[in-house]
């Protein structure tokens, strides 16, 4: 019987549109995080190295308890490393005052977490504008930026609705718009497609990807291979360490940079 040859696929396209040329947006160096002490001590991360360059989307996968969420909260300055350092745009988060850290978080970081945390008394646009206003941006400008962000995630028509007038998927997109509003340099996402159906999930990944293609750095924690597939690089965590990676950081400099080169993983083998 005549049979068909195995699938023929085009050669892999190069990862990322334009290779970034600047310094990493996120650099984690020898980061260890220990929770508790004594017999109940839990080591969430052990000496983790990771860099994310502008334009890169990096996905983190690993079994539960491998340290994925800890990694994300440390990268976002929501938690402090027991040892090692976290740099965002070259600034060591551990050396910032609480106030300076809060300002950097509002200005440079966007979070998409499973918990949406939209303010029920504010419209979608007001929710999205909130971090910009807190950062001193004039109300009108903040609103314009908010509408732009809502447009980016495809829900501009929801601008004047309140959270309880939206479906779960719509709320999720508004939360994502809030994470992307303004000139965020680093977007952190923890299972951002949690409550969404597969078509909407694809849209969310497309938005994240587009933001990274436009120059932001993205760090995505997920257990879904199909979402991690959008990343330039997938890093695998186990027991608080990087055990493997699907590639090297996608910049030419990283090859010359000792720190950057070792982050791709496999070093612990």
């Amino acid at each position: 019987m005549t049979s068909i040859a195995p699938p023929r696929l085009p050669e892999p396209a190069p990862a990322g549109a334009a290779p970034p040329t600047s310094a990493p947006v996120l650099r984690m160096r020898g980061v260890t995080r220990v929770h508790g002490g004594g017999a109940t001590q839990v080591v969430a991360l052990r000496g983790l190295d990771l860099v994310v360059y502008p334009g890169e989307l990096v996905a983190v996968m690993g079994p539960s308890g491998s340290g994925k969420s800890t990694l994300l909260t440390l990268a976002g300055g929501l938690d402090v490393a027991t040892s090692g350092e976290v740099f965002v745009d070259g600034t060591a988060l551990g050396r910032l005052s609480t106030k300076a850290l809060a300002a950097l978080r509002r200005r440079s970081l966007g979070y998409v977490f499973q918990d949406l945390n939209l303010v029920p008394a504010l419209t979608a646009a007001e929710n999205v504008a909130l971090p910009r206003e807190l950062d001193g941006v004039a109300t009108r400008k903040a609103y314009r930026e908010a509408v732009a962000a809502l447009t980016e995630v495809g829900v501009a028509e929801l601008a004047d609705r309140f959270p309880d007038q939206m479906s779960g998927g719509q709320q999720q997109r508004v939360a994502i718009a809030r994470a992307l509003v303004g000139p965020r340099r680093l977007v952190l996402a923890d299972e951002p497609t949690g409550a969404l159906d597969s078509a909407t999930s694809g849209e969310v990944m497309r938005v994240l990807r587009a933001r990274c293609d436009a120059g932001a750095a993205g760090l995505l924690v997920t257990h879904e291979a199909r979402h991690a597939g959008w990343a330039d690089r997938v890093v695998f965590l186990r027991d608080g360490m990087v055990v493997d990676s699907t590639g090297e950081p996608s910049t030419p400099e990283s090859l010359l940079d000792g720190d950057g080169g070792s982050t791709a993983g496999g070093a612990e083998r």
Binding site: P12, A13, A15, M61, A228, G229, A231, V234, T246, G247
Partner: peptide, 9 residues
């Protein structure tokens, strides 16, 4: 996973 990335691209 590399294959998934390639198909996604």
């Amino acid at each position: 996973m590399r294959a998934v990335q390639q198909y996604t691209r």
